[in-house]
């Protein structure tokens, strides 16, 4: 095990960073989609009340 520790650590880092990157993109995307839905609803409410 002691011999593979560096190999495991290196590949662990690869997957960790990849997942962090993908997760951050997905997460931001979800938040923005929510924002857009909310903003569009707001816009519509305002126009209907006019």
């Amino acid at each position: 095990m002691g011999d593979t520790i560096y190999l495991a650590a290196a590949y662990g880092v690869f997957w960790l960073v990849s997942f962090v990157l993908i997760y951050s993109i997905a997460n931001r995307q979800r938040h923005l989609q929510k924002d857009i839905a909310m903003l569009e609803q707001l816009a519509q409410e305002e126009t209907s009340s006019e």
């Binding site: 993109i25 997905a26 903003l39 569009e40």
Partner: peptide, 22 residues
Amino acid sequence: LMYHRIKLEQLQRRVDSLKQRL
């Protein structure tokens, strides 16, 4: 990754412009 990241940036700018307009 580029594809998804650019999509994300487009969304971001749409949100920004919507906010501006409101």
